[in-house]
Amino acid sequence: MPVTDKVPVHLLVNGEAYEVMVPPYKTLLEVLREDLGLTGTKHGCELGECSMCGVLVDGKPYLSCLAMPLDLQQAEISTVEGLANGNEPHPLQRAFAELGAAQCGYCTPAMLLTAKSLLDSNPRPSREAIRQALAGVLCRCTGYLKIFEAVELAAARSSTSPPAAHV
């Protein structure tokens, strides 16, 4: 098959079903940005070192720059565009904005999604659990502290249980 041939790919992104014709070598990152117009997911190193391209696949953090869409036709993909509920920002988005957890904003989509994945499995994580969960997502602006605080604020608002002492 010549590499220029396109193949149909079915993707479920943010709860919407898409069918696109794309060359099979295109990464999920490229398909999201170029074919689906979902440019919230960012290009970073394309080597799996920085996680700027992070999305959720079946609820888990996933590097879209290293993922092939053909492998993910059965999966549920979430991007930052799917976080808000209409005009209502996700609690994490609201907390990030209120506490200044975003500066240049380039890492913010991946940070938000990675934090969401953490809170979905651990609604009141300890500071240490947050640090470990976000370890793969690089931020060059914030020194991370306000990001930790924003995740804690969002967790506190969404949950009635106290934060875990460990893990």
Partner: peptide, 17 residues
């Protein structure tokens, strides 16, 4: 020449200020 050899601090690397 990449971020595995040039060590930009990650979330667990820094203390609380």
């Amino acid at each position: 020449g990449n971020l595995t050899t040039y060590l930009v601090p990650t979330a667990p690397d820094l203390p609380s200020f």
